[in-house]
Design a protein around this nucleic acid. Structure first.
Lengths: 109, 109
DNA sequence: AACTCATATAGACATTTGTCAATGTGATTT
DNA sequence: AAATCACATTGACAAATGTCTATATGAGTT
């Protein structure tokens, strides 16, 4: 992932309480949709919608196993998200504000 | 911050490309709104809207200095967000799925 | 006091989001 | 092949989001 826009879907996926709880549940290990559904008072279609957002963001891996979908966390993506947060919140030589003559950051302090 | 819901506004704040860029700019140090505005092709009111979301999420600190608003990053919040991501993505004894007899995680593996 | 500069707020609007009930699809079972 | 189970998709809808123009507020300047 290279650009700011690449991380927008990841943080969007993280910005819903239900999805945060689903991620937490998956930290225990693999689960199928029906297992997850039992823990929430939402409809099956709503869960399917959330799982789509989670898998499309790369935070969750979903593989079909017969009739079931087996979901697991994709730790690489969460690690990338953490690295990205660290990156944008710490000073660096190629900071966006130092590009194309940013008046603020290139002036003597 | 204690609950899942506490982090939703933080990730919501992070799930917009413009706001990610603003955070990146602030990693260089303090900036006022007009400095930030120069780097974007958005209206002044739109920037004001984004700064409100960033400050209310706790990611950015804004202090008035006469007519100016001086914005800085609030690293504690980003660190808390990172800790939270790590927390929910790694197995733990008090995992949500281990509460109130979760059928999946309490069964023998 | 009037003016200007920096920022906030209000109102309008199109788009996106989260939710559901209903239905479709594909796999397993009978 | 018919029925059932697990999940996805569709259509509808209210609420939230991101954007703008216009206007308000509040601070400094003339």
């Amino acid at each position: 992932m290279n650009s700011y826009a690449d991380y927008v879907p990841v943080f969007k996926a993280l910005s819903d309480e239900t999805r945060l709880k689903i991620i937490d549940m998956l930290s225990c290990g693999e689960m199928c949709a029906c297992d997850i559904l039992e823990k929430f008072s939402i409809s099956q279609s709503t869960l399917s919608y959330h799982m789509k957002i989670l898998t499309e963001s790369g935070l969750v891996n979903g593989v079909r196993d017969g009739a079931w979908m087996r979901y697991t966390l994709r730790i690489e993506t969460t690690e990338e998200a953490i690295n990205f947060i660290n990156y944008i919140t710490h000073d660096k030589d190629d900071c966006i504000c130092k590009q194309s003559s940013c008046k603020v950051c290139t002036e003597e302090k």
